[in-house]
Amino acid sequence: MTAIHIVGTGGYQPGDPIPTSEIARLAGPLPQEVLEGLSIERRFWMIDPKTGEHRENNSDMAYKAAVRALEAAGAEPGDVDLMILATGTPDYPLPPLVNLVQDRLGLTRCSTLEIRSGGAGVVQALDIARMYLSAGTHRTALVIGSEAISPVLAPVFLGRDPQSIRMRDRMPLYMFGDGAGAMVLRASDAPGGLMPAASACVGGGRKPGIHSVGGGTHAPIHEQLKARRLVDLRVDVVGAGDFTPVMVTEAVDAALERAGVSVDTLDLCLVPEGNVGWMLDSLREAGLDTGAWKALDGKVVDSLATMGAVGCAAVPLFLDDAWRTGRVRPGDRILLVGVESTKWIYAGAVVDWTAPAPS
Score class of each variant (00 low, 15 high):
P208S: 08
G179D: 09
A197W: 11
P220G: 02
E223R: 10
A180M: 08
P220Y: 06
H222A: 09
A219I: 01
P191K: 10
A190E: 15
G214Y: 00
V202C: 12
G215T: 02
A219C: 01
V184W: 10
A198V: 08
L194Q: 09
M175T: 15
G181L: 05
L225R: 15
G181R: 03
G214Q: 05
A190L: 15
P191W: 09
G214E: 03
G216F: 05
V213G: 00
L233A: 04
L194E: 04
A182I: 13
V184H: 10
A198E: 02
A200L: 13
P191G: 10
G193N: 06
H222T: 07
D189Q: 15
S212D: 00
A180N: 04
S199A: 11
I221T: 13
Y174R: 07
K207P: 03
L233D: 00
P220K: 01
G179K: 12
G179R: 13
G181M: 07
R206L: 14
G209D: 09
G205L: 14
T217F: 05
L225E: 12
V231H: 06
G193M: 05
A227P: 03
H218M: 02
H211A: 09
A219K: 05
A198G: 07
V231R: 13
P172Y: 06
G205Y: 13
R186A: 01
D232I: 10
L230K: 01
H222G: 00
K226E: 05
D232H: 12
M195H: 15
L185R: 05
H218L: 02
V235W: 06
A227V: 04
G209L: 06
G209R: 03
G214H: 04
A190Y: 13
A180T: 02
D189S: 15
Q224F: 05
Y174A: 09
L173G: 06
S199L: 10
V184R: 11
L225V: 11
V202E: 12
V202N: 06
G209N: 07
G215Y: 00
P196H: 04
G181V: 09
L230Y: 09
P191M: 07
P191C: 11
S188L: 07
P208T: 07
L173C: 14
R206I: 07
L225N: 09
L194H: 08
A198Q: 04
A219F: 08
P208H: 07
T217I: 05
A219S: 08
S199E: 01
S188A: 12
